[in-house]
Computed example of a mutant assay.
Amino acid sequence: MEQAKHPIDIRSLSLAELQEAFSELGQPAFRAKQVHEWLVQKNARSFEEMTNLPKALRAELAERYSIAAPVEVMKQVSRDGSRKYLLQFADGVAVETVGMPSRNRLAVCISTQAGCAMGCAFCATGLAGLTRSLTAQEMVDQVTHVAQDFGERVTSVVLMGQGEPFANYDASIRALRMLNDPEGLNIGARHLTVSTSGIIPRIRDFARIPEQFTLAVSLHSAVQSTRNQLMPGVKKYTLLRLHEALQFYTETTGRRPTYEYAMIEGVNDTNPEMQALCDFCEGTLCHVNLIQLNDIPDSPFRPSPLKKVEDLQRRLASRGVETTIRNSRGADIDAACGQLKQRQIRLRKA
């Protein structure tokens, strides 16, 4: 007996795809626009909410399509106002997402995969490995969930949560375009940032797309042996090749990549390590974010003292490299960089 197929999530269709589907149903084009507005701007969770649609059309849509929005399993609120959510999708897989308010802005850090296969030694996400990649809609769902919970418009999104975005490249780019879409959430391209551990072929692909999305690279060491220890998942992409790919990126786009550098006591905060980072950055278009490593239970790594972080900032500045010491948000609820975990839960069946 053939297994029944799950209906398509209607939110995965673009406005153009909706218009085509409605044309096949014999419906006027404006109906597709109405449904799109309900889904994107009003965050509708059922067809019954779409009160300006005829009842018969709502029933037909409910037969053909689903609205498979994630369920909030848990929410934690940090002292700094950040909120961390555990969101569960229809198949029982869950990911963590963080909303970070600041004055009149709201930034969201989203996951692109459930878990991660990169195995970075200082990151909690990869401890349980990779469960699966997320769809573009599941990425966008995280943003709309946070916006609805805060009751505010999201002004920026970073793909820095669980997973390696460039290991799920096509879905990540589609999600960025959905977030950027003037008919959608209309978030400016330069306020949409992808963080990669350094998958070189995808950095080159990213340089060639027309949108002005922002690139961040998790660097963490400019000494090959140290980086191999910290980031075994990108061992095959050497620092020399990474440097060349980033030069290609800046020459092709004219945009400045950001290097993330989590400072780990006795590992990447020594004099040779600092010298290597300065050499890697000097004379290139880049910005360095220095971060004191966030604590992870049972990890052998400890954050560098603040004076070491400030010393590295001075050294980079003396070489003409723009540098910021970044304050982590949500560390008290394990919502800061490297602290998001893959939760193995199955509270409801698909």
Rank of each mutant, 00 (worst) to 15 (best):
P70Q: 12
E72S: 08
V73T: 10
V77N: 13
V77S: 14
D80I: 08
D80F: 07
G81R: 12
S82L: 10
K84L: 10
Y85C: 00
L86P: 02
L87Q: 04
F89T: 00
F89A: 03
A90P: 00
D91F: 06
D91S: 09
G92Q: 02
V93R: 04
V93Q: 06
V93P: 04
A94M: 03
V95Y: 07
E96K: 07
V98W: 01
M100V: 15
P101W: 06
P101I: 10
S102M: 11
A107S: 15
C109E: 05
C109P: 03
I110N: 04
I110K: 00
S111L: 09
S111D: 11
T112Q: 10
T112L: 10
A114Y: 08
G115N: 08
A117D: 11
A117G: 09
C120M: 04
C120W: 07
C120L: 04
A121Q: 13
F122I: 13
A124Y: 07
L127Y: 05
L127S: 13
A128V: 09
A128I: 01
L130Y: 05
T131V: 14
T131P: 00
R132V: 04
L134E: 00
T135N: 01
T135Y: 01
T135Q: 08
T135M: 05
T135E: 01
A136L: 01
D141R: 08
Q142K: 04
V143T: 10
T144I: 15
H145M: 07
H145T: 14
V146C: 00
V146E: 01
A147I: 09
A147G: 09
Q148S: 15
Q148V: 07
D149C: 07
D149V: 07
D149Y: 03
F150K: 08
F150I: 10
G151A: 04
G151R: 08
R153C: 03
R153V: 14
R153H: 11
T155M: 07
S156C: 14
V157N: 05
V158T: 15
V158P: 05
L159T: 12
M160K: 06
G161F: 04
Q162S: 15
G163N: 09
G163K: 01
E164L: 11
E164A: 05
P165L: 11
P165S: 11
P165F: 13
F166G: 03
A167S: 12
A167V: 03
A167F: 09
N168P: 12
Y169M: 11
A171C: 06
S172K: 06
I173E: 03
I173K: 03
R174G: 02
R174D: 15
R174N: 11
R174S: 12
A175Y: 05
L176Q: 08
R177E: 15
M178F: 12
L179M: 15
N180I: 01
P182W: 12
P182L: 09
L185I: 06
G188V: 06
R190Q: 05
H191I: 00
H191D: 13
V194D: 01
S195H: 10
T196D: 11
S197T: 10
S197N: 12
S197D: 03
I199T: 11
